[in-house]
Computed example of a mutant assay.
Amino acid sequence: MTDLKMLTQDEVSELINVSRDQVAMFREVGIIRATKTGRSYMFSQAEIKRFQRDYVGLDVSNKVKALESYKKVNGIN
């Protein structure tokens, strides 16, 4: 049942070793999908695994590069 546990933005940032702001940017771009719960966002563990699988080897270090990677992963020209 631990797969059902949703992660907070802080937990995701710690788990994937990026800043909280970077996780927010990933969410805004659409790289990591989240569920809004009141004022916060929650992230499924499956979504984090999908991010790790789909974005391996791509540069998501800033918003411009993250958008380019998002388009590449989703086949958008």
Rank of each mutant, 00 (worst) to 15 (best):
L58A: 09
G57E: 06
Q22A: 14
F51K: 01
V64E: 15
G75H: 08
V56K: 15
I32N: 01
G75Q: 07
R33M: 07
V56E: 15
V64I: 14
R33F: 03
I31R: 01
T35S: 11
L4D: 12
E14L: 10
M42E: 11
T2C: 09
A34V: 03
D54M: 10
V18P: 06
S44D: 07
A34L: 04
E14N: 11
G75T: 04
K72W: 01
M42C: 02
D21V: 11
N77F: 08
I48W: 07
K72T: 08
S61C: 10
N74H: 15
A24D: 11
M42L: 13
K49E: 15
D21H: 13
Q52W: 04
S19W: 09
F51N: 00
Y70A: 06
Q9M: 14
V60E: 10
Y41L: 06
V29M: 00
D54E: 15
K36S: 09
D59A: 03
G75N: 14
M6I: 02
V56G: 13
M25L: 14
D10W: 08
G30T: 04
Q45D: 02
S19H: 12
S40W: 10
R53P: 04
K71C: 14
V60G: 05
I31H: 02
R39T: 11
R33K: 11
D21Q: 13
T37P: 00
K5G: 00
N74F: 08
R50Y: 00
S44Y: 07
G38H: 03
I48F: 08
N77S: 14
N74D: 01
V29T: 08
E28D: 14
M1R: 04
K5W: 05
Q22P: 01
N74Q: 11
E68W: 05
E28M: 07
E47Y: 00
V64T: 11
V60Q: 10
M1P: 05
Q9S: 14
R39L: 13
M6D: 07
G38P: 05
M25T: 12
E28G: 02
I31P: 00
I31W: 02
N74T: 07
V56A: 15
V56H: 15
K36N: 11
E11Q: 14
Q45F: 04
K36Y: 05
A46P: 01
R20V: 12
I32H: 01
V23T: 05
G57V: 06
L4V: 09
A24I: 02
L4N: 13
V56T: 15
